[in-house]
Nucleic acid binder design. Sequence first.
DNA 1: GCCAAAATGATTGACGTCTATCAATTCCAT
DNA 2: ATGGAATTGATAGACGTCAATCATTTTGGC
Lengths: 369, 369
Amino acid sequence: MKAPTLADVARRAGVSYATADRVVNARGGVADARADRVRQAIADLGYVRNVAAANLSQGRVYRFVFVIPTGTNAFFLHLRMILGAVAPRLRLEKTELRIEDVAAFDAPSLVAVLRSLSLSPPDGIALVGIDSPEVAAAVADLTAAGVAVVTLVSDMPDSARHAYVGIDNCSAGRTAARLMGLAHARGPGRVLPVLGSLTARDHRERLAGFRAVLAQDFPQIALLPEFEGRDRAELVEQALARLFDRGEALSGIYSFGAGNSGLARALSRFEGTGNRPVVIVHELTPRTREALGTGNFDVVIDQRPGAEIALALATMRQISDRLPAAPIRPIIPAIIFQDNMPDPEDSALLDAAGLDHTTAPHGRQGGLT
Amino acid sequence: MKAPTLADVARRAGVSYATADRVVNARGGVADARADRVRQAIADLGYVRNVAAANLSQGRVYRFVFVIPTGTNAFFLHLRMILGAVAPRLRLEKTELRIEDVAAFDAPSLVAVLRSLSLSPPDGIALVGIDSPEVAAAVADLTAAGVAVVTLVSDMPDSARHAYVGIDNCSAGRTAARLMGLAHARGPGRVLPVLGSLTARDHRERLAGFRAVLAQDFPQIALLPEFEGRDRAELVEQALARLFDRGEALSGIYSFGAGNSGLARALSRFEGTGNRPVVIVHELTPRTREALGTGNFDVVIDQRPGAEIALALATMRQISDRLPAAPIRPIIPAIIFQDNMPDPEDSALLDAAGLDHTTAPHGRQGGLT
DNA sequence: GCCAAAATGATTGACGTCTATCAATTCCAT
DNA sequence: ATGGAATTGATAGACGTCAATCATTTTGGC
């Protein structure tokens, strides 16, 4: 009752091992009729090639590249730190990680990096999606060349990327609105959305989800026009300071871009007064962690970069292994209060749940031993 | 620059391959001095045995057993469904899953199952912890026999189990309290805790966390004595009905046992009145999902059984592989509103983040290629 | 110094796959 | 029919480990 090998397939198809091998490894030079018989035998026996044996024989090393924006954005710095921390261990698993820098929000720069990568293509590339036809074209070239391409954090649904690894940003925005509504259970309020840039798809989606739920379920909350902070802390701080100086009575802030240290500074004037607005932000960073702890922020929605990296790696490996694609589901964000902050040193680690094994099954085939 | 093999170790230690093999596989018959030289060579070279090659040569199959309580508890039914769904795919990875039934909350029954399993010990066992010296003794025997033992959902910190796979229940209770407090931002209230049984460690921890945060940060909320529903829906429904009939003005309910369908029925009397208490429950099930959708519950704290199973499998595999133990971190629960419910059919699947690769690294060794 | 026991070395076949080479067969166009 | 091309078969070595066997050396007790 053990798993069939390629030799079994060859025997069943009535061909030699060499011919069966030519078919499964697409080496060419096999007549159609024979190739069909081999494929039929594979289907009949349910043959799945033994990736471990294959990799052993080839001495295969996976080469994966993460293309990460540069700059002071705390989230991406965190992503880099995790990648650095897991790289040594991954080497034991014959996986080499490389980080390529790219300017943030800069399509031409991203295209240049992708083009340069295609000179000696790695096995897989993870990149933060940007809405741009040129980037989409570069991605298409890479996938055509057999590179596994996944989008990280922000998707490019209209490109040829194999999968998106990240949270459902619309759902995250809706969740933020629900939390905001919960905190306004017994009264009206005025809420300000602060974002990085409307050119980023993930930010657009969060805003749309936030708006939709507020409009539908919380008519007592007035939504102010969003402020575009361009991920720059000082801009955020200034804008809020001006608002507060004008005497604007804010009951809530939803900040879903970077630059939250500016937000924290602007809020310091409320310390001890007890009438600080409700503050919901994205991404657990040293700053937001601190603000949660001191009670200056209420909620952090974290996209769990460790889980994202783990899933990205597993996805790229699976594509490289030519395994039947398992459905990739979005990362479920963590909703964090001062009471359930994960251990800071743990957040440098990959998130639990192995992907070889944590691969989702195809359907409802059911049946235990 | 490739990874050292056992042949390299033998050469470095100045012994034959056979001797080195005797050491790493604990076959005995090696003089201490020589064994030490081999171990030194292993340390010097950083040798890590190639598990894939080893398994290939042995035709190894992992045998893992999940000991799951019987009964109508929706959460455990869900766990069983996930296990059934992933079993076929795991077989491709040379992993055989088996479920053993055990009566819920019943230490003698659990001991009997564990004893029977030790007759032909599997490679790993995952079980729901019960506070009991007899169970702890049975676990100790199993680990001594070389079985990888992990506790699932509820821990047994004083036993010899290798790891706990589940959420931090104290933190979950604190989170629930924070959410409850957020919803009471502008006024006092009376909150009722509903639990399954105080004999279950996970329930005790949730209650303790919930109490602590309410007492510390939300003095305006009065905490009623907890109700023990014994995971039985009809008991929960009756108790609440009596309470409401008496005119008790509840502003919040935190239910962290099973039997939430009874809670939903008891709450139906508030439909359309707009003054239903804030309801926070545990575990995403068909019932709680429905109640979230209709607006009868506000928040579900889900321990993500798919992620738990994935992590349990990865952990057992890692122990079986005699790999350096990576720290096991708690599962981060999902906080779910009507706005961010995961796709129902997805919840039958394992959670993302492969564990071979999603294994956490040891420390801060750092350094990319 | 002798003998048994213990320790060590040397080697082989298996696991399933990939790559490569060479020989043998079939096909097709002329 | 004949030659060249395309197809097919047979086989070997490599990957790193494990299990097993048998031969050889060393050790320790007397």
